[in-house]
Design a binder for these strands. Sequence first.
DNA 1: ATGAAAAGGCAACATAGTTGCAAAATCTTA
DNA 2: TAAGATTTTGCAACTATGTTGCCTTTTCAT
Lengths: 147, 147
Amino acid sequence: MPKQATQDIETRIAALLKRCDLSVTESRRKILHLFLEQPGALAHGDIERKAGEKFDRVTVYRTLQAFVEKGIIHTIPTADNSIRYALCKDECSGGHHHDHHVHFVCSQCDNTYCLDDVVTPDIKLPKGYQAEHVEVVVEGVCKNCKG
Amino acid sequence: MPKQATQDIETRIAALLKRCDLSVTESRRKILHLFLEQPGALAHGDIERKAGEKFDRVTVYRTLQAFVEKGIIHTIPTADNSIRYALCKDECSGGHHHDHHVHFVCSQCDNTYCLDDVVTPDIKLPKGYQAEHVEVVVEGVCKNCKG
DNA sequence: ATGAAAAGGCAACATAGTTGCAAAATCTTA
DNA sequence: TAAGATTTTGCAACTATGTTGCCTTTTCAT
Ligand SMILES: [Mn+2]
Ligand SMILES: [Mn+2]
Ligand SMILES: [Zn+2]
Ligand SMILES: [Zn+2]
């Protein structure tokens, strides 16, 4: 692992936190690191496990909550009732989320992906219903698992 | 409340349970009743509350689980990580679900509706991803709250 | 370096969901 | 309709998940 590259990542992480008015702490850096070095989404449990015994459970909760509020990560609803979190594109960092992409959950490896290029379709609703936000979650077999 | 109508409902409930190879018990009848007399979906908590102190929590869990397995009800994923349950159309009762409709969660009254006539759109996925099932949940203002 | 402010750790609590087992209810069939 | 076999229920105990208050530690601005 080249020192230079690691340095860069750490710098980017610190910058992102500062830009979001979050003080740069060890747990926030660590958890953000987990998201950056991973293509898919992470469940709370994953994070707790990957972060090791190093951090208190409560800290993980509070960190994720802060990240969601600041638009660093967003939540992905799934059928099995376990919220997953994934990094937002930069544009979200403003303060409110404007993700309009589809999510994909692999039924084999259970990984969850943001399909950033697949926008959520318009849904024609019956008279009287007024849409504000559309969530689309596709379940199936992912790239890697497809044999 | 006319005796005749109540009788009919009870008969229908018993018939449905029998058709699904479920023995007709008080808790199952009661919970099925709750679904039938209500247009929207119910969360676990709702059911526990509406059924009164009469049944054990565990019984509610097991009843809902049985109903899902038999295709009597289906689950609806929501952003707030609380599974909701709603009656399936008759065709589901076979054993596996084939609901392809959109769900709607009202941000005001928090009610959840099955939009049975709004079918889930086809989603064009990137190369390599293979869809098996699509969930669409629309959040917004419902018929009753609009105004 | 120093003090104010923010975040973390701990403990205690609340809620949600699971499991094994014995008692009770339901179903079967004679 | 009266057993007996089978399911289902309730209870207790347990794990998992999430929240809150309070004090200590860390971070940040000066
Ligand atoms: Mn996403
Ligand atoms: Mn539905
Ligand atoms: Zn996969
Ligand atoms: Zn409403």
